[in-house]
Simulated scan of single mutants.
Amino acid sequence: MEVIALSKTIKGVDVLKDINVRLESGNIYGVVGRNGSGKTMFLRALAGLIVPTTGEIHIDDLILHKNMDFPHNMGLLIEKPSFLNYLTGFENLKLLADINKIASVETIKRFMTEYGMDPESPKKVKEYSLGMKQKLGIIQAIMEDPVLLVLDEPTSALDETTINIFRNYLNTHKDNKIIVMTSHNKDDINTICTHVFTMTDGVLQETA
C-alpha cells in the first residue's frame, strides 16, 4: 500500500496534510499523537471511508476510489464498535460472516472462546460491558484473516489478559498482513509495532 501526497480538507480545515508513506506486509505500523491530531482520519482514509481532497492511495496495482471503493480483504475497527443490540454476540458475528462466507461457525466460536466469551451465551449485546463490545469488535475485524488490518485504539477497555492475547495474535499473524493501528497504550506501540509514526496537526512523520 502506498499513500501519495494525501491531503484532506473538511470545512476549510486541513485535517490531513501531504502524507506520503509506503506500507508493506509483515509490519505493524503504530500511529501516535494527541486527540484531534488526525490519527483516526488517517485510518479512515486507508480504509476508504473518506475520499481524499488531493492525492491517492495505491493498493498493489489498484487505486482506492478509482478501481475500488474499499480495500479488498480488510479487517476494520474504527472508534467504538457498533452491533445489533437485540442479538447475541455470536449472532452478530455470524450475521457479518454470512456476507463474505469466509469465517466459519467453528472459527467464530474459536475466537470467542479464545477471547473469554461464551458463543452459546443467550446474553444480548445491549447487556454487554464496554470491554465485551471491544472484544466483539476485535473478533469481527480478524475472523476472516484479512491481509489489511486497520485498528483504532483496539485495546481500549480491555483487561490485561485480553490485551496479551490480542498482541500475541498480531505478532504471530503479521507476516502476510499490513497492520496499522493507533493506541494511547504505550506498551502496544513499544512492544509490537515495527514502525511508529507521529501525527501532528495532520502531518505524519516516522519516529522509529
Rank of each mutant, 00 (worst) to 15 (best):
95 L>V: 04
47 A>F: 05
38 G>I: 00
85 N>L: 01
64 L>T: 10
51 V>L: 10
111 F>N: 03
40 T>E: 12
69 D>I: 02
56 E>W: 00
94 K>T: 04
88 T>E: 06
97 A>V: 00
70 F>L: 00
110 R>V: 02
59 I>P: 11
100 N>S: 14
120 E>L: 11
91 E>P: 01
121 S>G: 07
29 Y>V: 13
31 V>H: 10
68 M>Y: 03
57 I>Y: 08
109 K>W: 01
102 I>L: 12
73 N>M: 08
107 T>R: 15
27 N>E: 13
124 K>F: 00
79 E>G: 07
34 R>V: 14
36 G>C: 09
83 F>W: 02
37 S>K: 04
65 H>D: 10
103 A>F: 08
39 K>F: 10
78 I>N: 10
98 D>Y: 08
80 K>A: 13
116 G>T: 10
116 G>P: 06
36 G>N: 10
34 R>P: 06
107 T>I: 04
116 G>C: 11
89 G>K: 01
107 T>M: 13
56 E>Y: 04
82 S>D: 15
63 I>D: 13
27 N>V: 03
44 R>N: 15
124 K>N: 01
92 N>K: 02
102 I>F: 07
120 E>H: 09
55 G>M: 09
107 T>A: 13
73 N>P: 14
66 K>V: 13
87 L>E: 05
64 L>R: 07
48 G>E: 08
67 N>F: 00
63 I>C: 13
71 P>T: 07
50 I>P: 05
45 A>D: 07
123 K>G: 01
96 L>I: 15
116 G>K: 11
33 G>D: 06
29 Y>A: 11
118 D>G: 00
77 L>S: 13
93 L>G: 03
66 K>C: 07
119 P>K: 08
42 F>D: 07
119 P>Y: 11
126 K>R: 14
101 K>G: 11
36 G>M: 10
124 K>A: 01
105 V>Q: 08
56 E>S: 12
